[in-house]
């Protein structure tokens, strides 16, 4: 789902950097308000490594093949640390693995990072919206929603970005059909990542519940 260099016009890339700049500033400010801002860095750093590696893990979803993103998982577990984590992870992915690109780093970070922050808020709303559910179920359901919707919203933004930026000289119909096929492949991926998030969160809840307080 990474957008490589040379696909989007320069204005869109610049807008992506502007949005990413704002979101980074906002996330860092939220982190700085915590009593101990560095306390969660180990957790964030390890999950950045997981995010960095995840994009090399391909899951064949006929007819396309999609790879893990894990942005919803990062949002659920890390909170506001997720945005800088995704930005750093994407930077190294662009540099080392060749996923995405440096000019589109801003667009990609906004596309994956902002849904991650939404996933965090979805997960945090478990104590207000999901009051009627019993405790292990409540955490399980909301972590699934966070993990799945974080990815789903990113896939929708990707779809929108590509469809509204098809160069005039391309056959728009064929390109649109190809993007739609790829996006439909992200529905099973969203379910997989949702389940993965649930498993991790329920595991953390059992062994180290303070990690989920964030």
């Amino acid at each position: 789902m990474h957008i490589p260099d040379g696909i989007l016009p320069a204005q869109v890339c610049a807008a992506g950097y502007a949005i990413t700049g704002l979101a980074t500033w906002y996330s860092l400010r939220q982190i700085n308000r915590k009593p101990d801002p560095t306390a969660e860095i180990p957790k964030a750093s390890l999950l950045t490594a997981a995010f960095f590696v995840a994009s090399s893990i391909y899951i064949p979803v006929p007819p396309a093949s999609v790879h893990l993103i894990l942005n919803g998982l990062l949002g659920v577990v890390l909170g506001y640390f997720a945005f800088p984590a995704i930005l750093i992870g994407l930077f190294f992915q662009a540099l080392v693995i060749g996923h995405g690109g440096i000019t589109t780093l801003g667009v990609n970070a906004a596309m994956m990072g902002i849904p991650a922050l939404l996933a965090y808020h979805i997960f945090q709303s478990r104590n207000t919206v999901g009051k009627m559910l019993k405790e292990p179920t409540r955490t399980g359901v909301f972590s699934f929603l966070g993990g799945a919707l974080g990815l789903g919203i990113s896939a929708l933004i990707f779809l929108g970005l590509i469809i509204f930026n098809i160069p005039a000289e391309l056959d728009a119909g064929a390109e649109r059909a190809a993007v739609l096929t790829l996006s439909i492949g992200h529905i099973p991926l969203a379910i997989i990542e949702g389940m993965f998030t649930t498993m991790l969160v329920l595991f953390l809840r059992r062994v180290k519940p303070e990690l989920l307080e964030g």
Partner: peptide
């Protein structure tokens, strides 16, 4: 158009990046 790294070089680079993240985690832990 790829970076032109051999699989071994790329493996070492990826390993170093991951070690960087783990090192950061250990430092702050």
């Amino acid at each position: 158009p790829s970076t032109g790294l051999s699989p071994v070089q790329q493996g070492i680079t990826i390993g170093s990046v991951i070690w960087g993240f783990i090192g950061t985690a250990l430092f702050f832990a």
